[in-house]
Each structure stands twice: as structure tokens, then as C-alpha cells.
Design a binder for these strands. Sequence first.
DNA 1: ATCTGAAATCTGATATACCAGATGTCACGC
DNA 2: GCGTGACATCTGGTATATCAGATTTCAGAT
Lengths: 237, 237
Amino acid sequence: MIEAKQGVGRVAAFERIDPAFQLTVRDHVYRAIRSAILSGAFATGEKLNERQLAEQFGVSTTPIKEALRQIETEGLVETLPRRGIAIRFSMQWAEEMILARAALESMIARLAAKRIDKPSGAELLATVDVMKTATKSGDADKLIALNETFHDHIHRSSRCGYLAKLIERQQFYDASIRRIIHLDPAERQKALDEHASIADAIVIGDADLAERLMRNHVVRSGETYLSIVFGQQKAPE
Amino acid sequence: MIEAKQGVGRVAAFERIDPAFQLTVRDHVYRAIRSAILSGAFATGEKLNERQLAEQFGVSTTPIKEALRQIETEGLVETLPRRGIAIRFSMQWAEEMILARAALESMIARLAAKRIDKPSGAELLATVDVMKTATKSGDADKLIALNETFHDHIHRSSRCGYLAKLIERQQFYDASIRRIIHLDPAERQKALDEHASIADAIVIGDADLAERLMRNHVVRSGETYLSIVFGQQKAPE
DNA sequence: ATCTGAAATCTGATATACCAGATGTCACGC
DNA sequence: GCGTGACATCTGGTATATCAGATTTCAGAT
């Protein structure tokens, strides 16, 4: 659908570039370090060195410092002034990130149930239908994308920008790990059932039910990811 | 109570200095800017200028940049590469911070109810008792301190460091505003009743009840703060 | 009067140099 | 042998200069 501005018919329908797309060095470094930490490349308590990181990335320390400040604010590392930067992330940290995400996603599901309108509700149910198909055919990549679409729909329906942003930071696994999970047919089916019932609860406006289902879904699937990322590790006895 | 180390009786009982105490320029700037934003010193969408801030604080841009990165990660401002730094905080943002805090605090209350031990439970109830006294006498400052103690007890009992840290960032009002609230006897009584029932629920281990009571408490008191900070503003109709 | 586009200017982004606290090393004196 | 303390060194913290994208300004063309 092309919308011409000011009645001039021949302007091409190029979408505005999202300013956040701009790849700064800082942003690249931020993602790289964050992802490395979350994938377990560093042991808890291990030290990071600003100069060394700068050398590895082939940049100055300035963008490194800024990226580390962001990662610090997220809680993944702790900066000890003039003593070093220590990794804080651990299995227990990941467990709590799941709990945080469960709390926030269930809150947002509750609000979505109260605020969703007819068209969005229909879209949400339609997404679930597509998921059913993808689940049967076992298309893992498509399921991963649909999963994101599903949660995005709910976030938008809740009209909560801040909460949605906060939730994004509570993810400690990436697409490659999701793919592993989606290879298991039983897991796919379980996720589908949960998504379907969550969508139903939101569309009929049952806030309490949507909240509860969402929390259970996030905790359950989170624990599955946890066992994959951290293997058979157990919390300290 | 003095604990001598290694049996040497004459060593003074100096406590270890918390490394986080060190006041760096960055940290000072971070707190100052954050507090200014939360107190409404800037309009939503208003631009901040790194050089100008550096000049105002009388420091270079380096600590300013790092502080802004932290504030950005919290979601209070948005950095548009090479275009400026825009304030994102608004009444709606504050409303969502309340919801986030409600979601996280209720999750932590749920865990505290499951994990609290006898001594901590007794301490929690004791804190509520002291609160009763302070409520009657109307000592606002003491109540503010006790409030913090109360929530800290619960955070510690939940054994969740990450969640507790995340919750800290969801506070948009400071002590001076709390004092205003605590001047109202009716408000004091309401808060006391809520605290008492939350403590009871946690101590008897009723996770569902603790969660629900905590959420309602945070939302209700949050809305009170909201109305004070933002006056009679209303969300866009 | 209006549109175009080059140049001035504003802003954050990055690089580099240097500062200062924290830590480790090791010769020295008991 | 062992505790002491000066000093080398490591680390993040801060200051400053410069780079480059974004925006604004405004002369010149239509």
C-alpha cells in the first residue's frame, strides 16, 4: 500500500530509516560483549580489561567504556573503580532473568487482555494459526520468527513501550539456541498449546488467566533454555 | 559487637569499605542527571547536549557520555547517533515504571514467601511492629527508613540479587516526595495495613497471596506518588 | 517567491594522552 | 625468616583533540 505525500503521485514509498539502525562502533562492541557473556564465554568473577578489549576490537577505549557502562547497567558485569570489571552473569543470574521476564511478560499480557482491540485480536489469533502450520511442518526458523511476532503483537496491544523495552533485556539466549529447542517436536507442540491458550485468554479479555498462562509459559520454556545453555549444572548446594 | 580477627584483641573493628562507595565524577553526574529527569526538570522530547552538560558540571565530556549511556540503558533518554539525546521520561513512562516495579516486587514477594527462614520471618514481623509505633507517632522520616528496611528484608529473603537490583531502577520518586505522602495519617495507616498483611502472607508461606498483596500495594502507592509528581495531568485521551 | 544545494555549524563518535587509585614485587632491616 | 614500605606496574577515570554524520543557513538560479 503506497501512501503518496501531499498528493504528489510519483514519490517512491521508501520507509523512513529507523535512526536506531545506525551501526556505531559502540553498539557493535556492546552486542558482541553482551552476547559473549550470555553465551558463557566468561566465567563468573572473571575480569575484563578495557585496553585489551580495545585492542581485540581494533578500536580505542572510548566506545569500549561506553558499551561496558551499558552492560553494567544491565547487571551483567560490575565495575570496580580502578580495580577492574568483573563478570556477574552466572546460572543463577540467568534464572533470575527468566523470573524477571516472567513477571514482566505476565504483567504485559494482563494489560494486553484489557486493552487489545478487535483487529489486533484477530491478528494475534491468525498468528497462532500460522504457528500451527509451522509446528506441523517443523520449520524451526519460521517458528522462531513467529514466536517473536507473537510476543510483539502482545507487547504492542498492551501499549507499553517501557515494559516491552525492559523485557528485551531479559533474554539470555539467542536464535541459535532457540533452533535447538524447536527441533524437538514435543517441545514445539507444548509451546504451540501454550501460545494458543494465551492468545485465547487475551482475546476474550481474561486478564488474570492471560497473566497466569504467560508466567507459566515463560518460566517453563525459560527452564528448558536454562538446561540447554548450562547443561547439567546445578545451583550450589 | 566487636569481632577480633585471629585472636588479636586490640585490632579496631573497622568495617570493610564497600568499593561501590567511591564517588567517581561519572557516578555523581549519573545521579544528578537521572534525578533531574525523574523530578521533571526536562520536558519529554527535550534534547540534552553533552558539551553543555560537561560545561555545567565543570568536567570533560567523557564522564558525561558514560553517565548518559547508563541513563539510556535505563530507558530514560534515547540517544540518536550524531543527532542528539532526547528525554523519553514522561507520565506514561512513570506509570509503566510502577507496573514494572509491581510485577517485579510481586515476583520477589512470591519467592520470599517460599524461601524465607524463621529468623528472617521474625525480623520482618518485628519491623512491622516498629512501623506500627512510628505510624502512630507520625514520624515520617523514620517511616521512610523503615519502609526501605521492610522491602530490603523481603529482597534478601527471596535471595534474588538480580531482581532486587532491577527493582531499584524502577523508582521515580525520591525521599522528599515520600515525606509528603507520609504526612497524611490516612495514607500512613493504609500503608501500614498493607505492609502488615504482606508480611503475614510471606511468613506463613502463602506465595500467591503475598504476590497479589504486594502487587496491589505497589500499584496503589505508586499511583499516589504519580498524582503528586505529575499533579492533575491526565494521560492523553 | 520558491527551490536547490553548497557551505557553515551543530552534535555525538572516536582516538589518544595522561591522571590517580589499587595491587604486586622485592630489596631492606630487624 | 619475616614483616615493612618504597616503587614499578596494572587498571579504570578523566581531559582534550579530532572525525564525521546531521541540520541549518543562505546565496544563487529559476
